[in-house]
Amino acid sequence: MEALTESNVPANESVNSSTPRKKKSNGLWKSFAEQKYLYLMSIPFVIWVFIFSYLPLWGWTMAFQNYKPSKSFGEQKWVGFDNFTRLFHDERFYLVLRNTLVMSGLGLVFGFIVPIVFAVMLNELRGNTFKRTVQTVSYLPHFVSWVVVAGIVSKMFSIDGGIVNQLLMWTHIIDTPIQFMAQGKYFWGIVTASDLWKETGWNAIIYLAAITGIDKELYEASRVDGAGRFKQMFHITLPGIRSTVMVLLIMSIGHLIGIGFEKQFQLSNNLVTDYSEVLDIYALKYGIQIGHFSYGTAISMFTSVVSIILLLSANGLMKKFTKESIM
């Protein structure tokens, strides 16, 4: 009897241990059956992401080759990490990296804080008509091409009738017009200000949506307790959108080094190249214009890898200290 009892224990334990797995598997299939149409609707987007985001990663192999377009993949000469060694020994690379980090840092600070402040202030407006008008006008610049924005900005800062120079001279801040677009020391500020004007209203939309999800009874209870509008903003509105703010901050940090090139390319000229050239323009210059495809691929690969590291690091730190994450 003792031997029989002892032999039954492992069997019972194995049955009990397999039960949660069966329940979990059944729950998964049940969830799939209940939401099958949502899964089917997501298939085209999964295919799109695979084709345009993952399939092109095969091109990273060019970074380890002396790529020649006239040769097949098997005929390419493999050079290992020579392109990366050349990249890290190029003084121009560190100048471009400085420009990228400074402009992305300015964009992260101002481009992240200003939309939050704008959304909170816009939420405090009482007139619905005026509120909707301001919101509509604020996000319209988002749909304007950077080509058009660059033309407007260049005209505004022009020494020949530019409104900025005229305003500074009218207020006696300066005596003669300043060539803002021809001096590198002004370029970073001009790019940051232009990006704020173009994207603040659009970026504020998601914060306004998060604010509408806050329970209105919290505001009513705070008014009963004597809290003013500023206390409501700091103790209800801002804590209420904290999760949204943290998620967007993590994603913004992930794009810290991959900031694109449109605004820098459109606003730049030969006089400010040392301040306007960023990593994406640097890769475009060597990869397309000069025809060093392998070197350009190495630059883009460096940008992507660093962006992934920044994203994972930011997500890990936020998860550790604020319990908020995107993964």
Results as ranks from 00 to 15, higher is better:
T5K: 13
P10E: 13
E13F: 15
E13H: 10
S14F: 08
V15N: 07
K22N: 06
K23H: 11
S25M: 14
A33P: 01
A33D: 13
Q35I: 00
Q35Y: 13
Y39K: 03
F50N: 11
F50R: 09
F50P: 05
S53Y: 05
G59I: 03
T61Q: 12
A63H: 09
A63L: 09
A63S: 15
N66I: 09
S70A: 11
W78L: 12
V79A: 05
F81S: 04
D82E: 12
T85C: 00
H89G: 12
H89N: 14
D90G: 02
E91G: 07
R92G: 13
F93L: 00
N99G: 04
L101G: 01
V102L: 12
G105M: 02
L106C: 15
G107S: 09
L108M: 08
F112S: 10
F118P: 07
L122Q: 12
R126Y: 10
G127Y: 05
S138G: 09
S138A: 15
V144R: 14
S145T: 11
A150W: 08
F157N: 08
D160A: 10
I163G: 02
N165M: 09
L168G: 05
L168M: 13
I173D: 00
I174H: 05
I174G: 08
T176H: 14
T176N: 13
I178Y: 01
Q179A: 15
F180V: 11
M181T: 14
Y186K: 13
F187T: 12
F187D: 04
W188L: 07
T192N: 08
D195A: 15
W197N: 04
E199P: 05
T200Q: 06
W202D: 07
N203C: 09
N203W: 03
A204N: 11
A204H: 04
Y207W: 04
L208G: 06
A210F: 06
S222N: 04
R223T: 03
R229Q: 10
F230T: 12
M233E: 10
F234W: 12
I236K: 01
I236F: 10
L238R: 02
G240L: 03
I241F: 05
I241T: 06
I241M: 06
R242F: 00
R242M: 02
T244H: 00
I250Y: 01
I250Q: 00
M251A: 10
S252R: 04
G258I: 04
I259H: 05
K263M: 15
V272H: 00
Y275W: 06
D280R: 06
I281H: 13
Y282D: 12
L284T: 11
Y286C: 11
I290A: 12
I290Q: 15
G296Q: 12
T297D: 05
T303W: 03
V305L: 08
V305N: 02
L311Q: 01
L312M: 02
K319D: 06
E324M: 01
I326Q: 01
